[in-house]
Write a protein that binds this DNA or RNA. Structure first.
Lengths: 206, 206
DNA sequence: CGCCGCTTGTGAAATTCTTCACAAGATAGG
DNA sequence: CCTATCTTGTGAAGAATTTCACAAGCGGCG
């Protein structure tokens, strides 16, 4: 199997959303050109991306919205739900937790952790907040695959070490630090400051 | 002036953070190799990135931490503060607002908007929440450069249209939609679902 | 049935990004 | 002053990604 670039995966994920919108709008079929237009790319790019995984379209017609939806879901591994833990019950954690769109897209938050003893034990939508020390046992018991890390920068590496030790295989990190994870564990970072600085650069150079 | 790739800018931003850490740790000087190691890249990459803007190092010695800090700040346009508006005073907006790290990095939130009449008028850390209808006048009066959009997907385009009309030149969008902005307006997206799906793909293919 | 208009899938070309590799500057030590 | 050791800056090579361009499949219509 050849290597799939990160940007190709991002775009697939984007196509998935566009397809869901098209589906909701009642479209039966969609062309690479329409997808490109709505996704801000080119039709050749769309076709190339899809061709990495097979040929799903019909010449002259385009793609069946239903079929492409299910193909992309399967490519991205979204057929079944992922079991997710959220670490950090601060404001960001709370915002993420209440963002119920995750649920709809197959990410099921099954545990919440925080280091603050005053928060531990309180209920969040039917889920009791656990102490960081319980990460190992709870993650194992709940068979968590993915963790969302929303703790301060100086606590993040320790939390991640615990998560990895407990068997988590994917981490989405919101703390502004470069985390170390062993190979075999997937890591993605969301760094708002970095994006703002990107805007600053763009505004600065013109 | 030649074109600078998005990834190069991201890395500069990363180097900036690493330099701040090195500075806090008391380092006077730093080599491309050290930066690379801490930033998860290669020394050639670091040197190439920096060489796009000039030659800031001393052979045999490396880079002066202080000088490189100020050079990168100036490249990224962070010498002066940016005037920022936050649109959307929900949970995410609240999390972003209270993340005072922005302030430290030169992004000064000067206005908060929300469409909910019950929120309008309440105070957030000394700032009164304004109605979306006021975007035009307030953004002009406050000379806002950058807006952070943290509203539901179906409201985002309308908000952005207003912001753009009022003269905002950079937008950081958290809503899961592909926004349309005129050329000349810089747009960055933070899409958590997309990142989670990227993790799903990574976990799925092995 | 045959032609026409549309759209896919994909090699090949073009472009962009990363890595290599090395001359040359800088310092320290004898 | 000379040598040994670092580390930069940068053309050139290599790799990856995007765009081009076109043959070929498909459906509709006369």
């Amino acid at each position: 199997m050849k290597k799939i670039s990160e940007s190709a995966v991002r775009r697939l994920s984007l196509y998935l959303r566009l397809l869901q919108e098209a589906d909701a709008a009642g479209a039966e079929t969609i062309s690479s050109g329409e997808l490109a237009e709505r996704g801000g790319t080119t039709s050749a790019q769309v076709r190339k991306d899809l061709s990495l995984f097979g040929s799903f379209g019909k010449r002259g017609l385009g793609y069946s919205v239903q079929e492409l939806l299910s193909r992309i879901r399967s490519i991205l591994g979204l057929q079944s739900r992922w079991r997710v833990a959220l670490v950090g019950a601060g404001k960001l954690g709370s915002a993420l937790f209440s963002y119920r769109d995750f649920e709809a897209r197959g990410f099921n938050i099954r545990a919440v952790f925080d280091s603050d003893p005053r928060k531990v034990g309180t209920q969040w939508g039917g889920l009791g907040i656990r102490a960081d020390e319980e990460i190992d046992s709870v993650v194992r018991a709940e068979e968590i695959d993915i963790a969302i890390v929303a703790v301060p920068a100086d606590a993040a590496q320790q939390v991640v070490d615990r998560l990895v030790k407990a068997g988590v295989r994917g981490i989405l990190n919101f703390a502004p630090v470069r985390l170390k994870v062993p190979r075999g564990v997937a890591l993605k970072n969301v760094d708002v400051t970095l994006e703002l600085e990107g805007l600053s650069f763009a505004l600065n150079t013109r």
